[in-house]
Each structure stands twice: as structure tokens, then as C-alpha cells.
């Protein structure tokens, strides 16, 4: 009796990020993944980095799966640029040592570059200048991961439209994955005061969803905490489809249960 592999995938092809999406010259995608308190998405960021570079995914196999790949950090599937507004590189290094095989003192290289903008105060039109330069100078396809960008516009004088236009421009140069908070306290569609955190975060999320091909929501269990399940992952289609630009690609709408243990290992199950 054979068992269906309960693998995590974003696409119908069964892949997390398919080669066709990376190679596509004409089309750049945007995926949004949201987390809440209690379900930090940092492990998923590491999973995306591993998949983009090596084509493997530790949560579908094991921590050593990257070692069996034909790709390496020197010869990656896609270059990865991480722009983090929440963490420094030392935070990710702890898991990258395990899942990407980098040194613990790794500070980034041309194929996996890291921009720590956690205390950035530059105007929004200058904020992404070094990032855009890195994307433009790359001969290999690039994927940009934006780690909780709301921490920039919630603490600086910057309109959501200005910020979104920067993301749109970057998205024209590279595939983009955006992680952001989506706690219930931060979202209120009836909020009218445009200066509040709730209004700004709601506006950002709404506009981001309308730019995305796929939305991944990581949430705690509605029934409360459990020892054997951390939460749920819901993959759903965004407002923009792949149909026109990349007809063969289709978001795999699916819901998973997942478990993170104290050692940081993640296991995903179909719901």
C-alpha cells in the first residue's frame, strides 16, 4: 500500500518554487506570507531560501536534503536577496548553518545577500537603492524576500502608496516574497483614521493581496494550543493569476497542519 507524500508545495506541479518561475524573463511573481503572534514564519523564510538556492526543501525531506542537490551556494538556482526589517543576519545564520551548510560567521555573499534595514530611517525613495543596485547588477535570476516591511512604514513618515510603488518597481526586476504580520488586532477594514497602525497595516495588506499571485497564511489552531500541532498553513490564490503570463503555473490551494519542535525541525501534514 503506497502513501501519498504529504509535501508542502505552492504549485500544482508539487514544487515549492518551480524552475519555470525562476527562469521566466517576462513574468515576475509576488507571494505574500503572513504570520501572527505564536506562529512566526522565520522557518518558512529559511525554507524558501533553501528551495531557491538548492531546489530542496527540508520540511519535505530532512535537514540534509540540500546536500543531495545539484545546486550549491556557488551555483544556485536563483540568487536570493533578503531585506529584513525585523532581524539581523545572525538570527538566520543559526538555521542556515543547519539547512544551507553555511559557516556560523556567514555575512552573506553575492548569491545570498542580506540587507539589515531594521533601523532604517532613510526616505522611502532612497531606502531600496542598494537593493535595486544588487538586483540590476545580477546576471543570474534573482528572488527578493522582504521580511516584515511594515516595521519601516509604521515607524517612518511614509505613505503606503509610496511604499507599494517601491515594491512594484522591485517586483519588475525580481520575483518577490513578502512576509508580514496579520494579527487580528492589526486589521480593521472599518478603521477610518489614516494615522493609526491598524489603518496603515490594513491598507498595506489589502494592496499587497491585490498584487500577489499567492497568499500563505500561517495561523495558530483555532481550537487552542496543542502539543502535536503548532498551527495551520493555508495556501490560497492571490488576486492576480498566472494565466496570462505563465500558463503552466497554478497556485496549489491547500491547507496544512504543521509542527515546529524545540530544535527547530518542521513537519507538515495535509489537513
Amino acid at each position: 500500500m503506497s502513501h501519498q507524500a504529504q509535501d508542502f508545495s505552492l504549485f500544482r506541479s508539487g514544487e515549492v518554487i518551480p524552475q519555470a518561475l525562476i527562469d521566466s524573463q517576462a513574468f515576475r511573481s509576488c507571494f505574500t506570507y503572513t504570520d501572527t503572534q505564536g506562529t512566526s514564519s522565520s522557518w518558512l523564510t529559511t525554507c524558501f531560501v533553501e528551495n531557491l538556492i538548492f531546489g530542496t526543501c527540508n520540511i519535505n525531506k530532512d535537514a540534509n536534503s540540500f546536500k543531495t542537490s545539484n545546486f550549491s551556494l556557488k551555483n544556485p538556482r536563483s540568487r536570493v536577496v533578503i531585506v529584513s526589517f525585523l532581524h539581523g543576519i545572525s538570527f538566520y545564520n543559526k538555521t542556515w548553518v543547519k539547512y544551507l551548510g553555511v559557516e556560523s560567521s556567514f555575512q552573506g555573499d553575492e548569491n545570498l545577500s542580506f540587507f539589515d534595514l531594521s533601523t532604517a530611517e532613510a526616505p522611502v525613495d532612497k531606502l531600496f537603492k542598494p537593493v535595486i543596485a544588487a538586483l540590476k547588477s545580477s546576471a543570474l535570476p534573482c528572488t527578493l524576500i522582504l521580511d516584515h516591511p511594515e516595521l519601516y512604514f509604521l515607524t517612518n513618515q511614509c505613505s503606503i502608496n509610496e511604499f507599494m510603488s517601491q515594491i512594484s518597481y522591485i517586483n519588475s526586476l525580481a520575483n518577490v516574497l513578502v512576509s508580514t504580520f496579520a494579527d487580528a488586532n492589526l486589521i480593521d477594514l472599518n478603521e477610518t483614521d489614516s494615522s493609526t497602525i491598524t489603518h496603515r497595516q490594513t491598507e498595506f495588506l489589502t494592496k499587497l493581496y491585490h498584487r500577489s499571485q499567492g497568499i500563505i497564511s500561517i495561523r495558530p489552531l483555532e481550537t487552542g494550543r496543542a502539543d502535536d500541532v503548532t498551527g495551520t498553513i493555508t495556501v490560497s490564490k492571490g488576486s492576480i493569476s498566472f494565466e496570462d503570463e505563465a500558463k503552466n503555473l497554478e497556485t496549489n490551494e491547500q491547507q496544512y497542519l504543521y509542527l515546529v519542535n524545540k530544535e527547530g525541525f518542521v513537519k507538515v501534514f495535509f489537513r
Partner: peptide, 8 residues
């Protein structure tokens, strides 16, 4: 919590 463990 930062590593994704549910501790609430």
C-alpha cells in the same frame, strides 16, 4: 517564539 515554536 522567533523560531516558530508555539508557546502561548
Amino acid at each position: 517564539s522567533e523560531s516558530g515554536l508555539m508557546v502561548i
